[in-house]
């Protein structure tokens, strides 16, 4: 399944002092997959675009912290 966030499992040592974070994630934003933007990309309306930070729907990739995600974020 395609996702804009990837995960990995870091090594957990027996002597690590802090409780381990078993899964780390990082962002792989849409610009990495587009190369050269084709003509006629789908667009947001002007007010939506301002809120989204981009006019182009395929480029929209909002970031939320874990507390915001627990509340479901607030995507457009």
């Amino acid at each position: 399944m395609f996702t804009l966030y990837k995960t990995y499992r870091p090594f957990v040592g027996p002597f690590d002092p802090c409780p381990p974070i078993r899964v780390k994630s990082f962002s792989t934003p849409p610009n990495l997959y587009i190369g050269f933007q084709p003509n006629n990309f789908p667009q947001f309306t002007p007010m939506e675009a301002l809120r989204a930070g981009t006019l182009w729907k395929p480029l929209y990739d909002p970031y939320y912290n874990s507390r915001e995600l627990a509340k479901g974020g607030n995507p457009l």
Binding site: Q37, M47, A49, L50, L55
Partner: peptide, 17 residues
């Protein structure tokens, strides 16, 4: 701000297209 933002986005896009 919304209309000007569309203009910024189209401007950057047109620079390359």
């Amino acid at each position: 701000q919304a209309v000007d933002f569309v203009l910024v986005e189209l401007n950057l896009y047109l620079d390359n297209h």
